[in-house]
Simulated scan of single mutants.
Amino acid sequence: MADYILRRLIYMLITLFAVASILFLMFRMLPGDATLQVISPAMDEAVQQRMKAAFGLDKPLLQQYFIYLKNLVTMEWGRSFVTAQEVTAIVSYRFWNTLLLMVSGLCMTLTLGIGLGIIMAWKRNSPLDIGGTVVGLI
């Protein structure tokens, strides 16, 4: 049992690493520049360079990636480009509402899913069962 748990934890870490890497690359490959919300093209070139240096965007992509991974692990997520607030404060502010919505949705899904599953099993091969199966597969 301990081997199974250890193996699942390793798979979880590999999955989290893959998702974080894909997100980093995806946001770097998107057209446009996210820094344009903060760094205006009308600004002086020296100011633009200082702001890029402050955000770490003047470093090579590989170095940015390792900084990103380090900050992700240590939960130093920096400041929002839009509101200039700490990202940790934004996430923690919305955490309880998100948890409430998630638990409510999970309870509703389980109740409906189990209830409809029981009805479909009771009325086996009926139009209700076939329709429910088709809708579930879609």
Rank of each mutant, 00 (worst) to 15 (best):
W77C: 00
W77Q: 00
W77T: 00
G78E: 00
G78V: 01
R79T: 11
R79L: 12
S80N: 00
S80H: 02
S80C: 01
F81V: 07
V82F: 08
V82L: 07
V82E: 15
V82A: 14
T83Y: 05
T83C: 02
T83D: 06
T83F: 03
T83M: 05
A84H: 15
Q85N: 15
Q85I: 04
Q85W: 10
E86T: 07
E86C: 02
E86Q: 13
E86K: 13
E86G: 06
V87K: 05
T88L: 13
T88D: 14
A89H: 07
A89Q: 10
I90D: 06
I90R: 10
V91F: 11
V91Y: 07
S92K: 14
S92F: 08
S92C: 05
S92E: 05
Y93W: 08
R94S: 12
R94A: 15
F95D: 00
F95A: 14
F95H: 05
W96T: 06
N97C: 03
N97H: 11
N97Y: 12
N97A: 09
T98E: 12
T98D: 14
T98Q: 08
L99M: 14
L99G: 03
L99D: 01
L99R: 12
L100C: 11
L100T: 15
L100K: 15
L100A: 15
L101Y: 12
L101E: 02
M102N: 14
M102P: 12
V103F: 15
V103N: 01
V103E: 01
S104K: 09
S104H: 08
G105L: 02
G105F: 06
L106K: 03
L106W: 11
L106H: 07
C107V: 10
C107D: 02
M108G: 15
M108Y: 14
T109E: 09
T109G: 11
T109R: 14
L110S: 04
L110K: 08
L110Q: 05
L110T: 04
L110Y: 12
L110V: 13
T111I: 13
T111K: 05
T111N: 04
T111P: 02
T111M: 13
L112S: 06
I114M: 06
I114K: 03
I114P: 01
G115M: 01
G115S: 03
G117E: 01
I118G: 04
I118K: 04
I118R: 08
I119L: 15
I119Q: 09
M120C: 05
M120H: 07
A121M: 06
A121Q: 08
A121N: 10
A121F: 06
W122Q: 09
K123A: 10
K123W: 04
K123V: 02
R124A: 03
R124N: 05
R124K: 15
R124P: 00
N125S: 09
N125Q: 13
N125W: 12
S126V: 06
S126G: 06
L128H: 04
L128F: 13
D129L: 04
D129T: 07
D129A: 14
D129C: 12
I130A: 11
I130Y: 07
G131F: 09
G131V: 03
G132C: 04
T133M: 15
T133E: 10
T133S: 10
V134I: 08
V134K: 09
V134S: 10
V134L: 11
V135K: 03
V135T: 07
V135G: 03
G136E: 02
G136Q: 04
G136V: 13
L137I: 09
L137P: 00
I138Q: 11
I138K: 11
I138Y: 13
